[in-house]
């Protein structure tokens, strides 16, 4: 295609975006828009799938049948979310197996929060409340993302996600009002997950390489720092209500901005974990790789069975 044509198409494309007209799979789109979306959606899908691991860790040790049923349902939801997202990436021409292999080779990233271990039952509370809470903060604006299939997947995900946060908060509420040992366990989980949860929104705006273009394309509707602020403002009163202490000495209400000022985030830790040096990076990717390798014969057997049956039918 001639360069002048592409310029014209890009102009038309941006005009559509500016008018809030959704982009659908077969519509023309700039290569960079497609690439950005494939990267973001597949990372998002990987996060859902890897996110099953820290919680799966506690299914067999849930304290009672109700908690176990709830946790199972939540983990099953995450698998579903992964599927919606892989499907959305496929509408852009991404090869699903290739995106999964990119996760396994370390080329593709996933949310760094899942590289932290879940050490106690209270961590199930902290993960549901904080991690799913932060995810919701991120995902609600994505329901209005300019790319139709991604936005529609997000609508479905958000509907399901709100029970995830509530069940986590319920676990924390219960522990925080229990024996002193239980309360201590809740506070410990909160202490360990608070800062990594804040890091989930990604680098601060000044250091975020993709934000500006993604905002122009309406893939993103808020900057990382805006979302992080919304999360802090929503979560602090919830912690106070159940009697947990925010592990941040610099946290204080700012009457001018009508929001909380919070302490400095340890970005060095963030980049270390993103770079593969978190406490569980290797364990997580190994688990995913093993799942694919161990399941390979099932995938092949099912396909062979289907082919045999369809051959019989047509014979």
């Amino acid at each position: 295609m001639m360069e002048i044509d592409i310029k014209e198409l890009e102009k038309k494309f941006q005009l559509k975006i500016d008018k809030d007209i959704r982009i659908e799979p077969n519509d023309w789109m700039p290569d960079a828009y497609r690439k950005t979306l494939i990267r973001q959606i597949s990372q998002h899908a990987h996060s859902e799938v890897v996110g099953m691991l820290p919680e799966g860790n506690w299914i067999t040790r849930a304290p009672n049948l109700r908690r176990k049923a709830v946790l199972l349902a939540k983990v099953q939801d995450e698998a579903g979310h992964g599927l919606y997202l892989y499907s959305a990436a496929e509408t852009l021409g991404a090869d699903r197996e290739q995106t999964i292999d990119d996760l396994h080779s370390g080329k593709a990233k996933y949310s760094s929060i899942f590289n932290y271990p879940t050490l106690s039952w209270a961590d199930m509370g902290a993960v549901g409340w904080l991690v799913d809470g932060a995810a919701i903060m991120n995902q609600v604006p994505l329901c209005r993302c300019s790319y139709g299939p991604y936005a529609r997947a997000m609508v479905r995900v958000c509907k399901e996600e709100s029970f995830h946060q509530r069940q986590g908060f319920e676990i924390m509420t219960k522990l925080a009002s229990g024996t002193s040992a239980q309360k201590e366990m809740a506070q410990d989980a909160f202490n360990r997950f608070w800062w990594p949860a804040l890091m989930m929104f990604g680098p601060s705006d000044a250091d975020s390489s993709h934000t500006e273009q993604s905002m122009r394309w309406k893939i993103k509707r808020h900057t990382n720092d805006e979302l992080r602020q919304m999360f802090v403002d929503a979560t602090v009163p919830q912690a106070e209500l159940i009697g947990l202490t925010i592990p941040d000495q610099d946290l204080k209400w700012n009457t001018v901005k009508e929001g909380y000022d919070y302490g400095a985030i340890n970005w060095d830790e963030f980049w270390q974990v993103v770079g593969g040096n978190g406490p569980c990076n290797k364990e997580r990717v190994d688990a995913r790789r093993k799942a694919k390798e161990d399941g390979k014969w099932v995938v092949e057997a099912a396909m062979a069975f289907a082919q045999k049956r369809s051959a019989k039918k047509s014979a």
């Binding site: 099953q76 579903g80 599927l83 919606y84 499907s87 496929e90 509408t91 699903r96 529609r152 997947a153 479905r156 995938v299 099912a302 396909m303 069975f305 289907a306 049956r309 369809s310």
Partner: peptide, 19 residues
């Protein structure tokens, strides 16, 4: 409502139910 991968129609229906 969306799409999924399955080896045949029967599995596609089952997966669709689950997902």
């Amino acid at each position: 409502v969306g799409s999924l991968r399955a080896s045949d129609a029967t599995m596609a229906i089952k997966n669709a139910r689950d997902v």
